[in-house]
């Protein structure tokens, strides 16, 4: 093999691996991206059962009830529309009524959002940025209610 052929070979291998990586990324992107919706968007978009997404909003005060030994039901609201969520498992330390929450899962045929994970990754000072943005969009929430809005809200 001449030097040139050898170099061409290396470049081919490099491009091959790059191609595989790009293919993997594109393929994984198609199926494994989870969108974030507020209760209003869920109603507007008419999201059917089976589609995984993240639902964010505030846990409505007085809505948390224990329906099974380790199952709870609560209502997520953006102060305009509501979605009922059912979740089996331990809620995170920061889960509280009246506070921001993000749940991941899918709608059930009965219109209840069945979550397999509940996140409340903010502390007392913050609200999850997606939730803050969703609430602002719903127009029922004033800036400055929490100290969160200093940062640019982004999906995490």
């Amino acid at each position: 093999m001449t030097r040139k052929q050898r170099r061409a070979g290396f470049i081919a291998v490099g491009l091959g691996i790059l191609g595989v990586a790009v293919g993997l990324v594109l393929f994984a992107m198609r199926d494994n991206i989870v969108f974030f919706y507020s209760p209003t968007e869920v109603a507007e978009k008419g999201i059917g059962p089976g589609t995984r997404f993240r639902l964010g909003g505030l846990v409505e005060k007085g809505s948390v009830e224990h329906t099974g030994p380790a199952t709870i039901k609560f209502v997520v609201t953006d102060l305009r529309k509501q979605v009922t969520v059912s979740y089996t498992g331990l809620v995170p330390d920061l889960f509280r009524e009246g506070q921001g929450v993000v749940a991941e899962g899918a709608m059930s045929p009965d219109g209840v959002f069945t979550a397999d994970s509940v996140l409340a990754k903010h502390d007392e000072k913050y609200m999850p940025p997606e939730v803050a943005a969703a609430l602002k969009k719903s127009g029922r929430w004033e800036e400055g209610q929490t100290k969160s809005d200093a940062g640019k809200p982004v999906a995490q």
Partner: peptide, 27 residues
Amino acid sequence: YPLFLDAIGGPKITVGPPFFNMTFAPL
């Protein structure tokens, strides 16, 4: 990618463990 999409005003998305498992593990 999610940060980029949000910065240009796209939808809010999450890229979770399934994405990484499908791309990182085969490499």
